[in-house]
Amino acid sequence: MSEPQSSLLLRKQLAELNKNPVEGFSAGLIDDNDIYRWEVLIIGPPDTLYEGGFFKAHLYFPKEYPLRPPKMKFVTEIWHPNIDKSGDVCISILHEPGDDKYGYEKASERWLPVHTVETILISVISMLADPNDESPANVDAAKEWRENYQEFKRKVARCVRRSQEDCL
């Protein structure tokens, strides 16, 4: 059986990211024998509450990639309105077109087969800097972000500190 297109495409991206790393994150595989499961380390973006943190996340690609999006899950504990308490990332570009039952999202904001690990992570890093509280995945974090920013900051700072300890 020849190698599926998805696997070739992911291999190509991995090689490219190893050759020309992108600022803000590093990427590799969870298990060298499984190209569909990636582990990334996101560096908390400068000038945000997450600055100084090292956040590990996993990306799970379906065999139908790039027709279907991967799922992304933070392994490091992180407090953010768009990341649920089990670490699952909720951003529109990881949602399949037509998935939006309630019509909150424009088709253009959803998954497209031109997205790569790099474009996904750029979106996630920008989400860290700029949460979207219209449709939160972690309601408590969203509420705090709006109404009790001091407490929100304190929780994020604790995550940043813990992420540094985990990395040592």
Binding site: N82, D84, C90, N132, S135, V139
Partner: peptide, 15 residues
């Protein structure tokens, strides 16, 4: 963004 809000508890989801 959005629509990730889950009605059930986290434990149910992980199961």
């Amino acid at each position: 963004m959005g629509n990730c809000l889950k009605g059930t508890s986290n434990e149910d989801i992980s199961l």
